[in-house]
């Protein structure tokens, strides 16, 4: 199939950036979206132009490195699918595709489609862990965890930290990302000792990074490639409020 791409080009954080149009011919339906961009980049290099910079690594939908807004939707039109797992059979001959970076104040553009998501790491640094040094642990089976709790923890822990939730949110809020980690650790007994301080500190850092607040659009849930439920945001709010009132949940 033949496609017309409109891709955001921006040489660096200070540049204003603009959409540029490229035609790509003979795209196979079996290609992944990123392989289609590889083909474009090889063409650009052959023509002596600068290839489009985009983040990617595992190309299996698990590392969370790739991310781009495709026709207005983070990671493209398929539900629960990262850009690297989106295949061209989703598109048809003659389609025009708009490709842009995540847009959020807390994710500054580094170049073209590459953004800086360091803010996510700084949120985790404020409490997205259990404070246990290596060697402290007791036998793994001394602490039975009901299967439903373990499953719920896993549902939240599946977050890959890609940032699609932020890109999808009209307020560029990082609530789903933050809530996923709080929800994971809050669902298992190991996370209880620090549950209250964790919610408080991570939420404060989220605000400090310049992410917006939640106004219940649920765009984040729809865009999440791992299908993480916005219910975890409710749990985070509960933990946060209880922490603010000095409670321990």
């Amino acid at each position: 199939m033949n496609l017309r791409l409109h891709i955001w080009r921006q040489s660096g954080p200070q540049d204003t950036g603009m959409l540029k149009t490229y035609d790509v011919a003979n795209v196979s339906e079996h290609m992944s979206f990123l392989e289609m961009l590889d083909v474009l980049n090889e063409d650009l290099i052959a023509k002596g132009e600068l290839p489009v910079a985009f983040d990617h690594d595992c190309r299996e939908g698990i590392c969370g490195t790739c991310g781009m807004v495709i026709n207005g939707r983070p990671h493209g039109p398929l539900a629960r699918t990262t850009a690297c797992q989106l295949h061209m059979r989703t598109f048809k001959d003659g389609d025009e595709i708009y490709i842009e970076p995540w847009r959020a104040r807390a994710f500054p553009v580094v170049r073209d489609l590459v953004v800086d998501r360091g803010s996510f790491d700084r949120i985790i640094q404020k409490g997205g862990f259990v404070s246990v040094n290596t060697g402290n642990a007791q036998d793994g089976n001394t602490l039975p965890i009901p299967k439903l709790d373990a499953d719920r923890a896993m549902d939240a822990a599946a977050c890959i930290g890609c940032g699609a939730c932020v890109a999808a949110c009209p307020n560029a809020s990082a609530m789903l990302f933050t809530a996923a980690k709080i929800g994971h650790l809050g669902s298992v007994p190991q996370g209880q000792a620090e549950r209250s301080t964790r919610a408080m500190n991570m939420v404060l850092q989220m605000d400090a990074e310049g992410f917006g607040a939640c106004t219940n659009h649920y765009e984040c849930e729809a865009a999440c490639p791992k299908g993480i439920s916005a219910d975890f945001i409710a749990q985070m709010n509960k933990d946060f409020v209880s922490s603010a009132f000095g409670g321990r949940d």
């Binding site: 246990v132 036998d139 793994g140 650790l185």
Partner: peptide, 10 residues
């Protein structure tokens, strides 16, 4: 044991 203590959801 260590990973369980960290909250890894096995």
């Amino acid at each position: 044991d260590q990973c369980v203590a960290q909250g890894v959801p096995f």
